[in-house]
Design a protein around this nucleic acid. Structure first.
Lengths: 220, 220
DNA sequence: CACTCGAATGACTGGCTGGTCATTATTCTA
DNA sequence: TAGAATAATGACCAGCCAGTCATTCGAGTG
């Protein structure tokens, strides 16, 4: 008896998968991929090890799925925030803010993202390529913003791809450094990252000329 | 018969250790910590597995040693470069340049540093604490430069610790993004990082006032 | 050359854990 | 409620590999 395009069974299956992935993130965050065992994950999810294999085909796949799903959510949220904000500066601020909020909201995911993600990408196996692509997709969300800013003369000429990646990584590592280490000094970390980046990329004269002179003959 | 404070045996032991660590870096870089086996490392070093245990007590220790030694060399080189350069801007440029050069000079180490280091730091085991400290030591090398720059009014007021870490991570991730991905576009990566960071931290009015006004009453 | 002793070896093992599957429990259907 | 279908279980297994150690090698010495 299908309801809303999904049978009862499909809904239950999906729910089970979500349960497993949530448990997996907790365990992977705590022990790291290497030291986490499937028994631990199964127990954390309140089921037996064999059950995991009804929903996923390997430890690697559980790991990759648990990261993939959250990462896509982060990207979607960043994309929405950028779309909602008006103006180059605000859009970049929104991207940083959203990433910070998402990191804060799921510490387990963030810890994995910080400690295991590079490793995952470097591995040439099936998931390595996928995750490199996924990372790049996320980073490139600000590329249109940068290009538009350059067109308006708000942002100086710079390599867009690298600048976009720099923002993603800067946000991640500064947040991580802060979480891992010393939270004692309570200045506005988010604003620090924004100021550092925005001053780093903006055009010499600030945003003085609204529809700025263009050097190259872009269309109307 | 001690020569130059070291016996023949001590020299040989040290040499053997260096051989092992070099081989270990190659293997760890290629396969990652998890998938690298001691047999591979031993073979790469031209010896049998048992021999490794004459010089190191575990796989973990070989790994930690292989990272530690290179990391300390990088730090030392950065420190020298900073000391040799004159002026805030030049010192920061020198720090970035040196890190780039060192990364380029030992790709194996750099790959480990990029893919495994965060993991190593996050692990609460014996090495986790040590490597967090070591990372911080490296990052903090530019702190005096930043403070001096702030005193001279060249650099705006900002949290020194975080700014120092941001530089380290920015250098690393931008370099990594470039190595891992697409080297096709040949702009000056080093200058990109420098410009991004320097513009990000410098004071509003540039470095116009050489012995700039100080807000707070620092001693003469 | 013969002897000594530390260095080097590599076959072996014990523990661990990813993955399996025969069995049991549960849910669905008629 | 009976019977079928599906989900869940957890004891078990197989392979892998870090770490060991009885044995062999070889440099130094007289």
């Amino acid at each position: 008896m299908p309801v809303e395009g999904k049978t009862r069974r499909e809904v239950l299956t999906e729910f089970r998968q979500i349960e497993i992935l949530a448990a997996a993130r907790r365990i992977f965050a705590e022990h790291g991929f290497r030291d986490a065992t499937l028994d631990q994950i199964a127990t954390a999810a309140g089921m037996a090890k064999g059950t995991l294999y009804l929903y996923f085909s390997s430890k690697e796949e559980i790991f990759a799925s648990s990261v993939r799903s959250r990462l896509q959510e982060v990207h979607a949220a960043v994309a929405r925030a950028i779309a909602a904000a008006m103006g180059t500066e605000a859009k970049i601020r929104a991207a940083i803010h959203t990433r910070f909020v998402m990191h804060l909201a799921d510490q387990s995911f963030f810890k994995i993202y910080f400690t295991e993600f590079n490793n995952l990408c470097a591995h040439p196996g099936q998931f390595g390529e996928e995750f490199k692509r996924l990372y790049l997709e996320g980073a490139r969300l600000v590329e249109p913003v940068l290009r538009e800013g350059m067109r308006h003369g708000e942002i100086r000429r710079l390599p867009v791809r690298e600048a976009a990646m720099a923002l993603t990584d800067l946000t991640r590592t500064v947040y991580a450094a802060h979480v891992m280490g010393m939270q004692e000094n309570q200045f506005d970390l988010e604003d620090f990252v924004f100021q550092l980046y925005w001053r780093g990329i903006r055009a010499e004269g600030g945003a003085r000329q609204p529809e700025g002179r263009r050097k190259m003959g872009t269309t109307s």
